[in-house]
Design a protein around this nucleic acid. Structure first.
Lengths: 215, 215
DNA sequence: ACCTGAACACCGTTCAAGT
DNA sequence: ACCTGAACACCGTTCAAGT
């Protein structure tokens, strides 16, 4: 079968093209099984064996995509956190970072899922490392709250672990069970950070104010 | 090829045998892709088409297994909750239920993962229903804490949603990233229920006691 | 050096045929 | 009524061969 668009460049830009194709395919049909090697190479206009010149197997290809997405996640968090942190508002920065995490997960359901669907045993140091970037920024956000005196937590890393797990659960469950009557994400993040990290919650303060007025 | 063990009974016990085989295969190799139709029927001693007499396709088979596991999860929670609830200790019952959820997830990593790996669009009412059984018992546990006066939360359902998401995140992340230095599950559940639901935490109380002694 | 054509062993699923 | 044998269209992957 003759391909309409033959491979043009003899550089290793093919590698990037394959990653682009895999990433966009993953975004469209967010089932990992639908993202087949033949679909990827078809989109680029090349035959299956050409892919194996750049990736050892499908898993390596997926891992490269995961690496890209983690980098994008890190950038999104950094961007969201920057402004409030510059103004010295540690709690607002932490909150913004958490919401950025959830927003990003919601906008890339297939991409987010694949980040953690990687098999246990074949998990790579690479993935661990990029994951820890997002985690470290969470630890940093909590430490900043401690230093600003708005968090009464003692172990920032242990608290960050719990917050991360909760965020991860929110990210996966809300995108997976869309029928469920979820409260707004902002509310849940607010309640979580208030309860677990101990930062002041505008929502709780507003409720207390209202009940005092009633009394 | 002659099968060693030919199909014996002409009942629909074959259906149960297939479910058993699929469930045990899922427990051994906890990758859903490894649980192939041919592996399942091989274990039972039957040919692939025989499976389609009892299940429309592989997804229906997986869904039936999911239903079984959810039932087992519900039973585990009920059992863990029963004793403390009988003694009127609402907070202890809630805590026991959450820990039972996490224990069960840890003991059945493949089984737990498959519960939520079901595709968004093909998700069935059945799965939603059995899932809501576990969720309703969480709502009930929180309501009991409200009535016992050990929780200052106003909306039990909204709180339960956040707790459920957090538990789900803990269940998946701790089993997926085993290298990560997780705090003990008991500690995290304690912190979560203390912070989000507002029930008293033995750990926090102990820490406060210790710091008072130091002062 | 980079890519293709053709094949391999697998997969889920179907269908005619056997008892 | 229940199961098998053989085939279908797919999949990931490999290998010899082309330029």
């Amino acid at each position: 079968m003759n391909r309409e668009r033959r491979a043009r460049g003899h550089g290793d830009e093919l590698r990037e093209e394959l990653l682009d194709a895999a990433e966009s395919l993953l975004a469209e049909r967010d089932d990992e099984r639908q993202v087949t090697i033949r679909a990827i190479v078809d989109r680029v206009g090349v035959t299956p064996p050409a892919l194996y010149l750049h990736f050892a197997n499908k898993q390596e290809l997926v891992k490269a995509v995961v690496g890209r997405r983690f980098a994008a996640l890190g950038a999104a968090i950094e961007h969201a956190v920057a402004d409030p942190a510059d103004r010295g508002e540690a709690a607002a920065a932490l909150r913004a970072g958490c919401l950025a995490y959830l927003d990003w997960a919601r906008e890339n359901p297939g991409g987010y899922a694949v980040l953690f669907r990687v098999r246990r045993d074949t998990q790579l140091v690479t993935t661990e490392e990029v994951a820890s970037v997002a985690f470290d920024s969470l630890v940093g956000g909590i430490r900043a709250c401690q230093e600003a005196g708005v968090s009464g937590v003692d172990d920032a890393r242990a608290t960050a672990a719990l917050v991360w797990a909760s965020l991860h659960g929110l990210a996966t469950l809300t995108s997976l069970r869309t029928q469920f009557p979820w409260p707004p994400l902002e509310t849940m993040v607010d309640d979580l950070l208030h309860g677990v990290v101990g930062i002041p919650s505008k929502r709780v303060q507003a409720r207390l104010g209202a009940s005092e007025e009633q009394a």
